[in-house]
Design a protein around this nucleic acid. Structure first.
Lengths: 338, 338
DNA sequence: CTGAAGTGATAAACCGGTATAGCTCCTGCA
DNA sequence: TGCAGGAGCTATACCGGTTTATCACTTCAG
């Protein structure tokens, strides 16, 4: 017998298919003894449900999807997605739900994937990352009635369920720390302003500047690439009056910036303090090791998984779960200004 | 109408379900005109096959799996898997086949996943990476009759189909280059000797040493972590007679090693040349930028996808496809010895 | 003693496709 | 004229589960 079906089990147990189904799914309709006997036989025949058959009858696939819209080249170096993925997986595996991953070029392609997944019944729900300001994906998944959870984007009115960390507070903690060290000229090498989280960080810097008595606190947008991170840094350090501290919106940009500082002979942290808004092995590999904001991305993923499961169970629920606050890990790249 | 089925199409077209199935799958049994009409209607109703229904009838799921057995913490920084994944995906998407990714802790868990996937009919085949010397996974997938392709491991007799690059040649090209520069004391910070590819690299160094007149060419095993890479480097550079060049088996270890050299005041490339056996943004971010061996991992993935599809179509085929040779990208971290 | 409610089970429909046996024409050939 | 054979299509079984209608039987209240 290659692969037992519930019919085989029913046969062996001398009951009907229905009874077996009831027993295996722990629902009423069979006596305690019969249930035990069926479970025993199923175990013994090492039966496993055929996922497709189950998906066809009931309308769930026990699978959720994650689409990342970024050029593959830039992926991989950022541990963010790997950790997020692991966290999601860990939150899902407890419920035997699998996770589908797809990397696409842009948001348009991403929406096309949702459309396909939805119509082919390949996933029960999806996770949205990197939310933009007026993100078309929100409307798209709503129109498809595809359960979804937004990561990192705080849902506004009528918005999707979300899991988020307080970017604003996190950024404030960085700037306040630098100000406390004595820095007054702090530059912020930001990400793409189109992203909601980037906007929140930029706003945080702008709002805190007067209160902390900062003389100059520009936020400079980039595309998150190491190239632009390096270019902006070069520009900043070429000015007559240089910033004494730079906050980078990603670890990769921070590393690139550190490289530029070394190349230009600017001592870190002697003449320049460097902070990365995201932690990873990368920041620790550097010399000097970078002060960085650590977020528990794994836990982020796990919580997102939980929320998504709730949304799938009841699509009307809207949860906005706030995760643990990021903490600043101080290393060797920050010091009082000269 | 929420979601059209072929029955709806059959209804609209005034034909039977069977005819619609024939038409949509491009198989004989319907006339040219009827086929055209059915396709038109299907298009118009924006019909998409229900993946589960299809999987139930035919015995294919149009999905393949990739399991990576490494602690999540070390993933992410290495772009290898992200690129491989993208390549696989690109090779599969042309055939509308989806890719399942799972990250687990160890090989045992990995095999358990294959067992589950197989019995639940979740995938049509799998990709095996990081092949160990006597890898239990090979027997496992064979026993499950699960089509599989090995990446990076050259299949021996009775082995699985594989896609591989010539690690030996690649390592030789590195060592020969260093020897040509004048280096005679070359250390090799290797990975886990349990991996087949690591063994091949170690052997390559050992075999080439006498021919190239190397005085000392030790291969030192590690667990691929930045920590061990750094530790071994520290040891090497503390010796009375230091190597003048070090080859690292991964970019992460090379970066860690470079950090140790800086910390110990050993000039790179003045007193020490550094080469990474794997390229990524990481190596380019460094100062000095690291000379590294570039492999086209994306293409690797794409070819693996092709081979896997062939194996799924005909499980008796055994293909051993060799991919493009890796090339050495020379940057700033290598120079003749002092 | 009768009727109602509850328990434990069965048989059959159903989900949305694919595969196959079989039916009806039509054509070609002896 | 008869028949083989193929094209074009229909009807139906089937894949492996879930769900529902139904039924036999017991129990208990009235």
């Amino acid at each position: 017998m290659a692969r037992p079906t519930i019919a085989d089990i029913a046969n062996r147990a001398g009951v009907s298919k229905g009874a077996v189904s009831f027993a295996l799914n722990g629902r009423p309709g069979v006596s305690k003894e019969t249930r035990a006997r069926i479970l025993e036989i199923a175990e013994q025949m090492s039966w496993r449900p055929h996922s497709a058959a189950r998906a066809l009858g009931a309308s769930r696939v026990d699978s959720v999807g994650l689409v990342i819209a970024r050029p593959a080249r830039t992926l991989g170096v950022e541990p963010f997605f790997a950790h997020l993925f692991s966290g999601l997986q860990s939150g899902l595996s407890a419920h035997s739900i699998s996770l589908q991953l797809l990397i696409v070029e842009d948001t348009e392609a991403e929406i096309e994937v949702y459309r396909r997944w939805s119509s082919e019944h390949r996933v029960d729900g999806v996770i949205l990352v990197d939310l933009a300001v007026k993100d078309p994906r929100v409307e798209a998944v709503k129109a498809l009635e595809l359960p979804a959870v937004v990561i990192g984007g705080r849902g506004g009115k009528g918005a999707l369920p979300s899991v988020w960390a307080d970017d604003r507070d996190a950024m404030l903690s960085i700037v306040e720390y630098l100000a406390a060290l004595g820095h007054r000229r702090i530059a912020h090498v930001a990400g793409t302003p189109n992203f909601q989280h980037t906007q929140r960080r930029i706003r945080a810097v702008r709002d805190a500047a007067p209160r902390l008595g900062l003389i100059d606190a520009p936020s400079l947008p980039t595309d998150f690439s190491d190239a632009e991170g390096a270019a902006i840094t070069r520009k900043l350090l070429s000015q007559a009056v240089r910033p004494t501290a730079i906050v980078y919106d990603s670890d990769v940009m921070a590393v690139a910036g550190l490289g530029v500082a070394m190349e230009m002979g600017v001592a870190v942290p002697g003449e320049l303090s460097v902070v990365a808004f995201d932690d990873s092995i990368l920041t620790q590999l550097m010399h000097p090791a970078l002060t960085a904001l650590s977020r528990d991305t794994f836990d982020f993923g796990r919580q997102a998984a939980e929320v998504l499961l709730e949304v799938i169970a009841d699509p009307t629920t809207v949860i906005n779960r706030r995760t643990a606050d990021p903490v600043l890990t101080v290393r060797e790249s920050t010091a009082p200004p000269a």
